[in-house]
Design a protein around this nucleic acid. Structure first.
Length: 562
DNA sequence: CCTCTCACG
DNA sequence: ACGTACGTGAGAGGC
């Protein structure tokens, strides 16, 4: 690396083509990621470097006119290497080009986008891996860049996905504090519940068995106890399904059923949210550093893993006690939750221009009550809680790509009744009906759908002769522009919020994103200012035909911030 | 490694 | 007559 001549020649080649690639191997976990060694490539010329050589490279790295081509930018940020807007992340661009695939590793991308590359070359052995990666990156760059431009995805990359990486890295680095003592206490409490239920279940089953095994449970319920499975219960490979829906439907047939449901509930909390969470507390920071994955979902949403902090319980009181374990870390006073109100239905209003939806949101009405009023033909004042519940289910169904079967199952009504609701809905909300018809037609014609911001999802199955595959693709065509536009909006809001907090030198920071919600930790003196700043950023990130609205709550823990 | 189940938006 | 709600991640069992 001390070879000045080699470096000089490398810089010349990089300058001549305006870009160079960097592959690195990383070690350690967030927030202690270290880059072990690097391979740089420009015009086929390779430079190798260790972390100690970084100062040597800083003029090259900091040159904003030179594009740095990498695969997976976030780990670079985690170890302090920032390429800002001059970064071309091939994993992100490949994701934008085809968000439906699971594979964005370099070998897969090489075989997909470099047809001249022989299969064996895409996973070259023998050569130092980082060197090979740097060479692949250099070849992939012009191909991916051209595809991105051709599909009008470059601005989405530059204004949304790339700037978001820095925000996500900061959130991952911050982590969220979990009260370990309270977690142990909760775990002991739940273990007692589980032990008691286990004994009762063995007693009622007249023998011991593994309650966690659907196979064994099915044989106990439907063979030993000779219980009758509810009509239409699905057969799995090993017997009748024993899921909550089945057990609920037959819950009064035998006292064991309530016990099983209860056992399952506590077991879920214990194994998924208490036992495994503890193992993921960083010994150094005492916080949980989830990963926010940017190239996973087909719609543009983020996902969260190790652990997943986007599915922490909230719908039951006992579940909310798990949420209450998340607290502000040292030096912070509160957690703040800011969530979009009905963002998907507001997007539906915008995309469909349906008169009822536009009017409801422009007048600040309760959208489900308004829907009930229309569908069931009663004045707004006479909408009962039950009618509202039903209308809410229909609205959800619309967003998912409705079917009478799905709605009937959700509401426990007959298929005919569900079909009647849908027919009435489409009669009253003809704008929505028209939009859904048009988007499916467009998907058939083009083979893809797009969001408000131009994110695209290919739907090749829409031409399938297989009924299941084709109708699934049609539902995706209806759902993706809605779910994906919501994802776009909150991503932009995160970028805006993050920079607004930085520009005002505020200590408060974003910790989590849960699809339509941001969770921040705040200090007392900043609370009012942060609330105002977050509201402004989230509500004004885009101008739709209807206003965006967020609810903000602050508390001593995540459950209290609701 | 796949299946089943269940937590979230 | 057919079988379907959209998008995720994770634990446990069992092959």
């Amino acid at each position: 690396m001390k070879d000045e001549a080699a470096k000089k020649s490398f810089v010349e080649k990089a300058n001549a083509q305006g870009f160079f690639s960097i592959a690195a191997s990383f070690s350690g976990k967030v927030p202690d990621v270290k880059a072990a060694h690097f391979a740089l490539c420009a015009g086929g010329e390779i430079l190798l470097a260790e972390e100690a050589d970084l100062p040597f490279f800083s003029p090259l790295f900091e040159n904003e006119t030179l594009r740095k081509v990498v695969h997976d930018y976030k780990p670079f940020l985690h170890c302090g290497i920032n390429f800002s807007s001059a970064c071309f992340d091939v994993s992100l661009t490949a994701y934008l080009l085809n968000p439906g695939t699971a594979q964005y590793d370099l070998s897969s991308l090489a075989s997909r986008y470099l047809p001249s590359m022989i299969a064996s070359e895409a996973t070259k052995e023998g050569t130092e891996e980082t060197v090979w990666h740097a060479m692949l990156l250099e070849k992939l760059y012009p191909v991916l860049k051209k595809s991105l431009e051709r599909q009008r995805l470059l601005s989405l990359y530059e204004t949304m996905e790339l700037p978001l990486v820095e925000v996500l890295a900061a959130m991952e680095k911050a982590g969220i504090y979990i009260n370990r003592t309270a977690l142990h206490e909760k775990s002991r409490e739940i273990s007692a519940h589980i032990n008691a239920l286990t004994a009762e279940i063995y007693d009622l089953a007249r023998g011991e068995f593994n309650i966690n095994s659907p196979k064994q449970l099915s044989s106990v319920l439907f063979e030993r106890l000779e219980l009758q499975p509810p009509m239409g219960t699905k057969k799995t490979k090993t017997g009748y399904s024993t899921n909550a829906e089945v057990l609920e439907a037959m819950r009064f047939a035998h006292p064991i059923l309530e016990k099983i449901l209860s056992y399952r509930f506590w077991m879920k909390l214990q194994s998924t949210y208490l036992d495994s969470m503890e193992e993921l507390i960083s010994p150094r920071t005492q916080r949980i550093h989830t990963r926010f994955n940017q190239t996973v979902t087909a719609t543009g949403r983020l996902s969260s893993s190790e652990p997943n902090l986007q599915n922490i319980p909230v719908r039951t009181e006992e579940g909310r006690q798990i949420r209450a374990l998340f607290e502000p870390s040292d030096g912070y006073d509160a957690l703040m939750s800011a969530d979009y109100s009905q963002i998907e239905l507001r997007i539906l209003a915008h995309l469909s221009q349906d008169k009822n939806f536009l009017e409801a949101f422009l007048h600040g009405q309760d959208i489900h009550a308004r829907t009930a009023s229309e569908v069931f033909d009663v004045p707004m004042e006479q909408v009962t809680a039950d009618l509202r519940r039903k209308a809410k289910a229909v609205n959800f169904g619309i967003v998912y790509g409705i079917s009478d079967y799905g709605l009937s199952k959700d509401l426990h009504i007959s298929r005919q009744e569900a079909a009647d609701y849908i027919a009435s809905y489409f009669e009253k909300c003809s704008g929505v009906k028209n939009f859904l018809d048009k988007i499916v037609e467009k998907a058939h014609d083009d083979g893809f759908v797009t969001t408000i911001f131009g994110r695209r999802r290919d739907l090749p199955a829409i031409k399938s002769s297989n009924y299941n595959q084709r109708t699934l693709a049609e539902r995706m065509a209806m759902n993706t522009p809605i779910q994906g536009s919501a994802a776009d909006i909150i991503k932009l809001a995160m970028i805006k919020t993050y920079h607004a907090l930085n520009e005002h030198s505020l200590k408060s920071r974003i910790l989590l994103q849960v699809h339509d919600e941001l969770v921040l930790e705040t200090v007392k003196e900043e609370e009012a200012q942060v609330a105002e700043l977050v509201r402004h950023a989230m509500e004004n990130v885009v101008q739709l035909s209807v206003p965006l609205f967020i609810d903000i709550h602050t508390g001593k823990n995540w459950a209290a911030a609701k």
